[in-house]
Nucleic acid binder design. Structure first.
Length: 421
DNA sequence: TCTGGGGTCCTAGGACCC
DNA sequence: TCTGGGGTCCTAGGACCC
């Protein structure tokens, strides 16, 4: 098999660029796009970046800067971004069928089957995407995905690269890696970065030269893969046919805290319907639905509250009515004490292919898993209902298994929890 | 007191990505 | 006052089976 040549095509400031396509007056002006409820900055034009507005910052923290410099702050429009993403991906597929859509604004391509020089091909892609969709992209090329990512990083910032950089067999590879901070390497996050820096590893080049045994010892196989990929040894392939999803979540924060049941039910109904759409689009059916309601993550401890409830389906379903009915009744069970709820959501779990579910083949393994999940939850509810003192982690555990990121570390003691009849 | 070994599955926690 | 949303993978250790 031919060695792949990976290209990473990444849309520049994607959401901000989408907005500009439809409102050319925004060109040259600093623009930021805000998250749900205009809570945080989730995209910035180059002009906004130059003003020092960080990614992900709460809007109220940069309001002054925004007003002072006349930054345009726009609410997000995900329907628009999804549509634009589709157009960009479609354009790229004219160059090669070997494409992995990696996120809403990124795709990996394998250029090895294209006779043209990869760099020249990259320039043509860049120009074509710009022409056909109005979206500016940067392209990094390399023998591994990690190196393509690294090349992309420099393609964005280097004037000389002008949006396209090929590091395959490049005499500049070392110099390029020297210029990339270790925290910008694909696979290096906050925690790993901290440890690397403590060990004197500051750049991608340092990381490439790190002792592999030490890396394995400190960071496990993922670390070894990252370093190997920096050395040009391929650990990740192009995934043209991504595996089926393992869970689907739809959740939103409310603009302001709510205390009534009806709006909670209205919101979760909508999420259930939306989750159903996603489910059908993936050709899946759900064996279990989990619903949660919670207070603000930032509330003081005594005012925090989080509960969730899992509902098993006899037969895995993708039917909107089933999903909504389950969500509405579950929320009612969860809604007990007069807390100020800030967020709710619906998760679909134990996903199986729709055709199998329709034939009633929700097999023993699926059933076993669902039963176990339910048993865990039952136990918690039993414990609560008889008023036995239970550890704070009791309620957290089933939650944490499903929400590993940004897990609310609620330390509510049992005494703080509302009574259950 | 001595008290196998290997395989699989699952959970909980910790990291990462966009 | 205001603080996004949605994913994946890896590992250690325990339960359980033969």
């Amino acid at each position: 098999m031919r060695k792949p040549i990976f290209a990473l095509v990444d849309c520049n400031n994607f959401y901000a660029s989408c907005e500009r396509v439809f409102d050319p007056k925004l060109a040259g002006r600093p623009v930021v796009v805000l998250s749900n409820n205009d809570g945080c900055v989730v995209a910035r034009s180059n002009e906004a970046k130059a003003l020092g507005i960080p990614m992900g910052i709460p809007f109220f923290e940069v309001r002054q800067t925004i007003e002072k410099h006349g930054v345009l702050a726009l609410s997000s429009n995900y329907t628009l971004y999804a549509d634009m993403s589709g157009r960009v991906m479609e354009t790229l597929s004219h160059f090669t069928p070997h494409i992995e859509v990696y996120s809403i604004d990124e795709a990996f391509l394998d250029l090895s089957g294209i006779p043209e020089d990869p760099s020249a091909c990259g320039r043509r892609m860049r120009q074509t995407v710009r022409q056909w969709t109005g979206i500016p992209v940067s392209i990094g090329i390399g023998p591994t995905k990690t190196l393509a990512k690294a090349a992309n990083k420099l393609a964005k910032t280097s004037r000389k690269a002008d949006g396209v950089l090929d590091l395959t067999d490049s005499p500049w590879l070392e110099e390029a890696l020297r210029r990339i901070e270790v925290r910008d390497v694909w696979g290096v996050g906050r925690q790993i970065c901290k440890k690397l820096k403590a060990a004197g590893i500051h750049t991608a080049l340092d990381l490439r030269g790190a002792n592999l045994d030490w890396i394995k010892n400190q960071f496990g196989v993922q670390g070894v893969r990252t370093v190997s990929e920096l050395r040009g040894q391929r650990c990740y392939e192009l995934e043209e046919n991504p595996p089926a999803k393992k869970g689907i979540t739809v959740s939103r924060g409310f603009g302001r805290p709510i205390t009534a049941l009806v709006p909670l039910q209205e919101a979760t109904s909508l999420y259930a319907a939306r989750a159903g759409e996603k489910l059908r689009a993936e050709g899946l059916a759900a064996g279990v639905m989990s619903i949660f309601i919670m207070t603000s993550r930032f509330a003081e401890k005594s005012k925090r509250y989080l509960r969730h409830c899992a509902v098993p389906f006899d037969t895995a379903t993708d039917d909107t009515q089933d999903l909504i009915a389950a969500a509405v009744s579950a929320v009612e069970q969860l809604y007990r004490a007069g807390y100020e709820y800030k967020k709710s959501g619906v998760m679909l779990l134990e996903l199986v292919p729709r055709d199998r579910a329709q034939r009633g083949l929700f097999d023993s393994k699926d059933r076993d898993r669902s039963r176990r999940l339910m048993a865990t939850l039952d136990q918690i509810n039993r414990t609560r209902s008889v008023g036995i003192q239970w550890a704070a982690e009791g309620i957290e555990k089933p939650w944490q298994t499903r929400f590993t990121r940004k897990t609310p570390r609620y330390t509510t003691s049992w005494a703080d929890l509302p009574q259950i009849r």
